[in-house]
Design a protein around this nucleic acid. Sequence first.
DNA 1: TAGAAATCCGAGCAAAATAGTCGGCATTAA
DNA 2: TTAATGCCGACTATTTTGCTCGGATTTCTA
Lengths: 149, 149
Amino acid sequence: MKLSTKGRYGVQAMFELALYYGEGPISLKVIAENEGLSEHYLEQLIAVLRKADLVKSIRGAQGGYMLSAPPDKITVGDVIRTLEGSLAPSDCVVEDIPFECSRSGGCPTKVVLEKIRDAINKVIDSITLQDMVDDYKKMIQKNSYMYYI
Amino acid sequence: MKLSTKGRYGVQAMFELALYYGEGPISLKVIAENEGLSEHYLEQLIAVLRKADLVKSIRGAQGGYMLSAPPDKITVGDVIRTLEGSLAPSDCVVEDIPFECSRSGGCPTKVVLEKIRDAINKVIDSITLQDMVDDYKKMIQKNSYMYYI
DNA sequence: TAGAAATCCGAGCAAAATAGTCGGCATTAA
DNA sequence: TTAATGCCGACTATTTTGCTCGGATTTCTA
């Protein structure tokens, strides 16, 4: 039940964009360096986010990426689902288009899986990028006496 | 973020054992048939559950498996974690022994991952096999007018 | 106008995980 | 004694993951 790196790196990258929201485009190079990720790999992920209209790009020198909406309008769920698809723990409980197993109607395991799915969705849909930025800034202040990477 | 079949089949098998708890050993063949699973594959999974002392086995003809504790003492979390390991969505937030990434202290993504982890754990640790059995029996009654597989 | 800095695009690929299958031995009830 | 059943280890095909690589295109800036 691990999130793949797609989802995790995607959230990390979107957090960076949220941090610099309103300050013009940020290049992939900067994002990758700040978060310690492969630039080439991030490229693939951000292409998906761009097609889903979560980020905008500006080509050419001094170009880069920016959020296409304010950080408080984009949730972690938007990002993760765009990159990983539904977070349903099984195909039989994917929202709207569940793959029907033979005993779909009366399967007690399905009930369990639905509860897991709903719990995950509730969490990721309730956290916005702005929440992450706020948390981060609060933490930096709190720990300003120590050396932070 | 899918549960592998290990976890799902494991829960299905344990549900079967819960359904027949107190009625002597149930053979893998029966479990596999009832749930529509491969008997050989289930064998591997139940071996893990046996080593974790969640089920007991009786060898030889008329042998089989049974829960080693009453269904209300075994949670879905016990079963899934035994078969899949921690349900933390990333290695950096595995309970007790997280794999430390470079920015572990101040990583805002980690906070998100911890919340997902906790939400999942809360759900699976709150559902016992007895709960599944109760749900199932209630549902059968409710739908007794229709033909159920 | 040249060149550097970016994004964009598609192909390829090694390693790991997944989801099993298969064959045979050991045990025990009938 | 035989059939039913659990126990065990090896093997494997397929899919997913997590990238890398090369090059084309766009655009800012000097």
